[in-house]
């Protein structure tokens, strides 16, 4: 019997400090047993449980794309016991990963459609996974226009800056990067909150356009009316949720929103699905 609680042993290969406040770091992990990498086959939108031996586990969205081989990447905000311990770890350290867990963005359903990705703050991780996957030549041809609206508090708080700039230069993806306030005079992108930029830049909603929304509750709250105004159907607004989790496999009982578990039945839901639940998230 396979033990779903067993963390695959991994080695930290690289640690990248992402933001100017140094609270967000990206960890690149390599599986000690290469066979485990195959077992960890994932789809953008899924998450894993990072298991810091001796400290505990945290559920974190997978930031790498399945098209990137030989490693997996997670970007972690320093908040509690486990994430703080993780932030103090260095390349070469051994820990564990369980997963992949949960469902993913509905890539099959969105085939041939336009996709508008709306992200804020450090919730951009599975969206990075999605963008890298979408821009892979094998996948890009299967989707229509791609818009990305991504906001952070300041330029220094944007994740994956090098990649954002690279995507800016491409013509097969429309980037709309924004910051709440630009503290450098040479900032040449948008200034303003995500909902306002969405209203100004996102294409109107129609049968061929999906919106993927992932961000802090306040951003989600104010983005939804904008998407309504733009005509997005609630069946085509895709959201990724977070809740406190332990097991990640629908057993420990804490992350439920009604009868659905965010860990197993989610974390990805359409707005229509969410409206039928008590929305305890």
């Amino acid at each position: 019997m396979q033990n779903p609680y067993f963390p695959y042993p991994v080695r930290i290969d690289e640690v990248i400090t992402e933001t100017e406040d140094k609270n967000l770091k990206t960890f690149k992990f390599v599986f000690l047993d290469p066979g485990d990498e195959k077992k960890f086959a994932y789809t953008p939108g899924q998450f894993g449980e990072l298991s810091v031996t001796g400290k505990g586990e945290i559920p974190i969205g997978i930031a790498s794309s399945p098209t990137e081989k030989g490693f997996v990447k997670f970007t972690v905000n320093k908040v509690g016991v486990v994430s703080t311990a993780l932030h103090n770890m260095v390349p070469g350290d051994i820990m564990g990963i369980r997963g992949p867990m949960g469902n993913w963005y509905p890539w099959e359903r969105m085939r041939g459609k336009n996709i508008v990705i709306v992200g804020g703050g450090f919730a951009f991780t599975t969206l990075r996974s999605s963008i890298v996957w979408l821009l892979d030549p094998a996948n890009r041809k299967n989707y229509g226009d791609i818009h990305v609206i991504y906001g952070a508090r300041s330029p220094g708080m944007l994740l994956y800056r090098d990649e954002l700039m690279e995507w800016e230069r491409r013509d097969d993806i429309h980037m709309h990067i924004t910051v709440d306030r630009a503290d450098t005079p040479d900032w040449k992108y948008n200034v303003g909150f995500v909902p306002a930029v969405t209203e100004a830049k996102a294409p109107p909603g129609d049968a061929d356009t999906f919106a993927i929304v992932c961000g802090p509750p306040i951003m989600i709250k104010f983005t939804q009316p904008v998407l309504d105004k733009l005509g997005y159907s609630h069946d085509q607004i895709i959201m990724s949720l977070e809740n406190r989790m332990k097991c990640g496999i629908g057993m420990c009982g804490r992350c439920n929103i009604g009868m659905e578990f965010v860990c197993k039945d989610g974390p990805v839901f359409t707005l229509n699905q969410l409206k039928k639940t008590p929305r305890e998230y």
Partner: peptide, 10 residues
């Protein structure tokens, strides 16, 4: 009732 927590102890 089946809910549980997972904790590490060292």
């Amino acid at each position: 009732c089946w809910c549980f927590d997972i904790q590490d102890e060292v």
